[in-house]
Computed example of a mutant assay.
Amino acid sequence: MKIGIIGPTENEIMPFVKCISNDKIVSTALLKFHNGIYNNINVVALYCGVCKVNAAIAAQILIDRFNVTHIIVTGVAGGMGKSLKIGDTVIATKIAYHDVSDGILTEYHPWMESIYFKSDELLIEHCKRALKQERFEQTVHFGKVVTVKHL
């Protein structure tokens, strides 16, 4: 397993990067990829800039150049759930586009069965186990997440 971790800003990703051992920095496409080990897991972390297009570019480079098997995207976002409060964490169980017609994904390439990209079940289980073993200050929720462009 090799995990890619993407954050939108330096402030959001650098506290994690400081915990990476054997950090080797690779610069490409105006991005700095921190390649190393965290808790005996191979990781590559970077900040990509704000917006889903920047995250998509970073994700593709992580896949093509660094051969990651999983990608975690972290950062600040708004939420609409009635139970959500400022500072809560939401771990996506599935993700959908807000600004793309459903038929674009299901009737054309990539011919998905539904509009949702499902999160890796093994990573969800790891998150749930970590929540049982560790104490976190914020409330953690599991659920659907949607992307949306700025209006």
Rank of each mutant, 00 (worst) to 15 (best):
R65C: 13
Q133N: 15
F117I: 12
R65D: 14
Y116G: 01
T147C: 07
T139Q: 15
V53R: 10
I13D: 01
Y47W: 14
A29C: 11
K85A: 13
K85D: 12
M112N: 06
A96R: 12
H126N: 09
E12P: 09
F66Q: 10
Q138S: 15
K132N: 09
F142R: 05
V100G: 00
V26S: 07
E125T: 08
R65I: 13
K32T: 00
V50I: 15
K24I: 07
E134Y: 11
V68K: 04
H34F: 04
K132M: 07
K52W: 14
A92K: 06
A96G: 10
H34R: 05
F142Q: 06
E107K: 15
K32C: 06
E12N: 09
T89F: 14
V140P: 03
N67F: 07
V100L: 15
Q60K: 15
H150Y: 12
V90W: 04
L84D: 03
I91Q: 05
T106V: 10
I25V: 15
A45H: 06
K2N: 04
R135A: 10
H98K: 10
L122H: 08
K149W: 05
S27P: 01
T69C: 09
K94S: 10
N22S: 11
V53T: 14
T147F: 14
K85H: 14
L62T: 08
T93C: 04
L84P: 00
V76C: 07
K132G: 00
T74C: 08
V68W: 05
C51H: 14
E121F: 00
V140W: 11
I124Y: 03
F33C: 06
I104S: 09
S21K: 08
V68C: 11
A59P: 05
K24D: 01
K144E: 14
N35I: 00
H70Q: 09
T28Q: 13
T147G: 09
F33V: 10
Q133E: 15
V26W: 01
G7T: 03
V68I: 11
C51D: 15
N42G: 06
K149I: 14
D88F: 10
